[in-house]
Design a protein around this nucleic acid. Structure first.
Lengths: 231, 231
DNA sequence: ATTTTCAAAATGTGATCACAAAAATCAATA
DNA sequence: TATTGATTTTTGTGATCACATTTTGAAAAT
């Protein structure tokens, strides 16, 4: 049996087992610590987190509905393989979705929430300065999430998170084969546009943030990376 | 126990029980035959489709990940209530997502696939002429799905379907309180633009198709409908 | 008539078991 | 050595059971 090592995770009281399993697996996929092509077994995961197949199966179903996992014809479950084409689609969709989410937030966001964005961005810069990639990644997600969820009726956030999840495995590959991930962002540009309630400028900043960040990989670089990772 | 009546559904051989349960519930929600606010019980559904709680729970988890169901704090599960604000967000997101999907399909679609779109549109017109709302709705979905999936690496279709699912309950309400759903579409405009491989014109046609179709409800009309339905 | 109390029923959750299909292992054969 | 074939193990699936929590409904009290 494939021995799966999973980072333990804080489990708040009252959280159900399947929810906990979902969180832990999601986290592992998001940061790219499960190799694409590696097959996950229900019993293996259940044993790794000291529970039983039932709640693990529920977690796997949710993750496959979220696009994080793929169910094969054999009913085996694995992290989807990445291709240059799929990567391109993911980046393009991410740009579309997050521009939409940002536009729809501009009319709702308060000055206090914008101040919060400033604080998150500052914390991210500090994490980058200390070469703490994992924390920087998490804070970058928190920046975007905080912006988009300023709209209380927003529907798009789960879809944005789904794209992040699907990009996770590639991040894992990139981190393993690139000496240093260089972070560039357009957060301050977005913040300035938000202060002015300039919807167009906000969308533009978010688009640039995505396209010049993770989306900035050249196609040749991507194919090279994937080849190196044996995909 | 709330007695749930579910349309039986064709079950292909080899389809697992949880997949079948997922399909049947999804279908019921999509056409608006489950009233928002009505609480679904695992055992009730299991009994209604002559199976057991385990696979039903998996189906419910998937549907909640797809946005079709909402898990309350009591762990009760229900179809989310609709509000005018949520409806507005859903329509705006639908327009954004489907314009994106359409643009991304233009470069891949073949003449044969465009011919297929023509056939589907014709069948839909016939269904409308015969006042067969259910069939017309299904064919409309098939039109859009066929267009978007012309792109083989496409990622967005599950998200489009998620929005359709979330709009389903409102459709059910509208059908119950409006004498006749008037169908307007921009399919022929989209087809003409596809033949010319005019990405901008395709996106424009899809946008109009959505905004003038289900998205055409005035806010006052929506609030009135929701009030009538006791939401 | 309304509210409170308390027992009974219903419900979500997760562990366990049995079964069939798939994968892996190993011996026999070419 | 490589390949086939049979046996064993592993795995996904779904039904069932026990437990804790919630909901329900009726009786009692205000």
């Amino acid at each position: 049996m494939a021995v799966l090592k999973l980072e333990p995770l804080d489990r708040p009281e009252g959280m159900t087992t399947h929810e906990y399993a979902h969180r832990r697996l999601r986290q592992a996929i998001m940061v790219g610590s499960i190799r694409p092509g590696e097959s996950l077994t229900i019993r293996g995961i259940a044993e790794a987190m000291e529970s039983s197949p039932t709640p693990v199966r529920e977690a796997l179903r949710r993750l496959s509905s979220e696009g994080a996992l793929k169910v094969l014809d054999n009913r085996r479950i694995m992290v989807p393989r990445m291709t240059a084409e799929r990567f391109g689609e993911l980046i393009a969709l991410r740009a579309t979705l997050e521009q939409h989410a940002a536009r729809r937030a501009v009319g709702h966001i308060t000055e206090k929430q914008i101040d919060r964005l400033v604080a998150i961005d500052k914390a991210q810069d500090e994490a980058i300065a200390q070469n703490d990639n994992a924390t920087a990644l998490l804070l970058n997600q928190e920046f975007h999430r905080t912006l988009y969820t300023a709209n209380p009726d927003q529907i798009v956030m789960p879809m944005v998170e789904s794209v992040w999840l699907q990009l996770g495995p590639f991040l894992g590959i990139a981190m393993a084969h690139v000496a240093q991930l260089y972070f560039v962002d357009r957060h301050q540009e977005a913040i300035a546009a938000l202060r002015k309630r300039d919807e167009e400028a906000v969308a533009s900043a978010i688009n640039a943030d995505i396209c010049e960040g993770i989306g900035g990989f050249e196609r040749a670089a991507i194919e090279n990376l994937l080849r190196l990772a044996g995909q």
